[in-house]
Structure formats: structure tokens, C-alpha cells
Simulated scan of single mutants.
Amino acid sequence: MTAVEFEHIEIRENGDPLVDLRTYPFELYPSYFSRGLAPTSAMYLRRTVADRLVHVQRSLAPLSFTIWDGYRSRAVQKNIYEDFLDTLRIKHPDQDEEELRKRAEIFVTDPRSSRRIPPHTTGGAVDLTLVDEHGRALDMGTPFDHFGPESAALYFEDNTENTAVRDRRRILRDAMVGAGFRCDADEWWHFDYGNQIWAVHYKRPVALYGEIDDYS
């Protein structure tokens, strides 16, 4: 995500509220709560984002969504970032701290910056996958938060050893992009709507969503 500059985009907050995803027809698996990195299992997105996901899910039937993460506070963002940084420190003990932080930011926005708003803190970013009509997760090539090259959205377009995974990622990506979402290049599961990085991608002059303070 560090390769994309988006903090210069003006935000004109439109007031779209957060909604509780427990009232929506999705399977929910609050991944960061299960790992002890978030204080609650409740999951939220901006209402427009959640409503668009409902329409996408209907178009994909009999497939449906499992959602791993939506809105997160900056405090939770910090927990996730530091957890990943600790993993990198163990895996790469010879690298200095600056290099490790650069590696971490490919996948997780550094929450220390007051200029850069992490996309998830706007309620306009969602992490999800596809499940079949029996609720079984489809093989998408990597698990959630596999921070490696195989997680790139187009990895299996160039590495064609698994055409089934390639086709499943295409189904997800095409449906989400067709509904106006931005697909993250580094994470096949991550999609944006209304935030600054979405605005940059679609050459919009302003973003619709700014940061939401800690919400529960």
C-alpha cells in the first residue's frame, strides 16, 4: 500500500453512518477479535458499503461472503501493525527497524502517521472471501493475512499453476469492481469504497469518507 499516495486527496465527509453487520446477511468471522487484537467481535461498515455488498452477494448466488474485517479504530490498527512487525522481526532478525517498517507497510498502514488515514478506519474498507452454498470457504490460494507475494490480487494471472484459484479470484474481483469497489493490488481479499485510496484509484477529486474515531 505504500506505493500508492493518497493522503493529498481532500475528504468531504458525507455522514454515511456505520452499520452493524450482524443485521446483514453475511457470514462474519471477526479475525482480529479472535486473535486478541480487537476488543469486540462486533463488525461495522459504512451503510452504503454494506448495502452494495448485499447486491454483490445476490449476484454471486449460490456463493456468498464471509467477512473478516471492516471498520477498525486506529488503536486496533496499531495492534495489527505491531503484531505484524513483531512477526517480521523474528523472521528477519538481521534487518534494521526502518527496513522492517517498510516491509510491514506493504500490507498494513502504519498508524503512527497523522497525515495518512488507514483505509479501514474510515469504514470504507472490507476484507472478505467467498463461501459455497454449504458455508465452506473456497480455496483462494492463500489464507487471510498471508503477507507474501501469493496474496497479490493478480498473482495467479501470471503464475498459472492453479487455474481454479485464478478463476475464483476473478469472480470475486470482477463482481466487486463491477460494483464500484477498488481491489487492492497486494491483498486479494481487500476492497475499498469511498475512502481516499478509492478516490485516487478512480481519479475522483474528493473522498467521501474520513476517519471515524474509536467506535463501539
Rank of each mutant, 00 (worst) to 15 (best):
T2R: 13
A3E: 05
I9A: 01
I11R: 09
I11Q: 03
E13M: 03
P25R: 06
Y29P: 00
P30I: 05
P30L: 04
L37K: 08
T40L: 06
S41C: 04
T48S: 15
D51T: 11
R52N: 14
V54M: 09
V56I: 15
L60A: 15
T66H: 06
T66K: 14
R74H: 09
V76R: 01
Q77C: 10
Y81Q: 06
E82N: 12
D83W: 10
F84L: 02
K91F: 09
H92D: 02
Q95D: 09
D96C: 10
E97L: 13
E97A: 11
E98Q: 05
E99G: 05
K102A: 10
R103A: 09
A104P: 01
F107G: 00
T122G: 02
T129I: 05
E133V: 13
G135K: 08
F144P: 00
A152I: 02
A153G: 08
Y155K: 03
T160Y: 08
V165Q: 01
R166D: 05
I171F: 14
L172A: 11
A185F: 12
E187H: 08
W188D: 01
W188Y: 11
W188V: 06
F191I: 01
G194E: 01
E211W: 11
E211V: 02
Y215R: 05
Y215G: 03
